[in-house]
């Protein structure tokens, strides 16, 4: 490439670079800066250590507040992500193998809920899951026992799965739709039955889509706060709620510290997963 074209490439990237610097890099620096300073902006580790040491009493037992909240957030996010994967992967596979017309219809069906406001969707789930809600009316109408689900962890998980499922399906689907049919025929030709094709060809080839699906579900689930407040009846304080609470209470430095720790943990998780899938996908020597 000539110098001229590389200059024009740089120039054309300039607006994006500026945008990224202003709205991604600078805020991140601010988060870090706030996390490591006190109210008069002196350097301190207090906010970080408060996250690990703050204690409170839950049902008579003393617990480390934020670690407990953090653990609960990770647990619920992990469960939601696994359910999204279990539901989303077969759905993406079925979609990618369907006729073109059916593919489009299914795509629209998945997209339509995303056009509606997130808050409204969560409120809708409240009316469904309430003790006197649609689900329980239905259960009693067909003669089954009513269940109490609103305000439980299950309700929060249901809300998260519903909201984030499309983010799991779409990246996996887009990878599967691009997959060459000939590869599947080749696998058949070389002795694979259906299970073998899935295990040896389809799953390994769709791993990058699975990885981005997991990323796109796990991160918003870990940091969600609205769903847990509405569907958990405020009983399940999650890390997102903690950040929001500290922020509302004008504890900006501690809110930044929680965000900072959350970010580090998520980055570590993503790096670990990337490493794992890279080895699986291109692992030259892994089998010998």
């Amino acid at each position: 490439m000539s110098k001229k074209s590389s200059l024009s490439t740089k120039l054309s990237l300039a607006p994006y670079s500026l945008w990224a610097a202003l709205f991604i890099v600078v805020p991140l620096i601010f988060v870090a800066y706030y996390a490591f300073t006190d109210n008069s902006f002196n350097f301190t580790f207090d906010n970080i250590s408060r996250f690990f040491t703050a204690k409170s009493k839950v049902e008579g037992a003393e617990v480390r507040t934020y670690l407990l909240i953090f653990w609960r957030s990770l647990k619920l996010a992990f469960i939601s992500t696994v359910i999204c994967l279990l539901l989303g992967y077969p759905l993406a596979y079925i979609m990618s193998r369907a006729k073109e017309r059916s593919q489009k219809i299914m795509m629209i069906l998945i997209m339509i809920p995303m056009w509606m406001n997130f808050l409204i969707r969560t409120y809708a789930w409240m009316t469904i899951l309430q003790d006197t809600g649609i689900l329980n009316s239905f259960l009693s109408a067909i003669g089954l026992r009513r269940i109490h689900i609103i305000g439980t962890e299950s309700a929060v998980v249901i809300g998260m799965v519903y909201d984030y499922l499309p983010y799991m399906v779409l990246p996996i689907y887009s990878i599967m739709a691009k997959m060459d049919d000939k590869l599947i025929e080749a696998a058949k030709d070389l002795g694979c039955n259906s299970a073998g094709i899935l295990r040896r060809v389809i799953i390994p080839l769709s791993l990058p889509g699975v990885l981005s699906g997991i990323t796109m579900v796990l991160i918003p689930s870990v940091s969600t706060f609205y769903i847990s407040q509405k569907l958990g009846n405020g009983k399940f304080f999650l890390i997102g709620d903690a950040i929001e609470g500290q922020f509302v209470a004008n504890n900006l430095h501690f809110a930044a510290a929680i965000s900072f720790i959350l970010m580090i943990v998520l980055l570590a998780v993503m790096a670990l997963m990337k490493r794992f899938t890279n080895n699986r996908v291109y692992g030259g020597g892994s089998t010998l």
Partner: peptide, 25 residues
């Protein structure tokens, strides 16, 4: 066995693993 028009090699496997594929099956 078939040699496909555009080869249909498995992009997630290296040369050795592509050839080893039917044997691993």
């Amino acid at each position: 066995n078939t040699v496909f028009q555009k080869y249909a090699l498995f992009p997630h496997l290296n040369v050795f693993e592509n050839v080893a594929f039917p044997l691993r099956v």
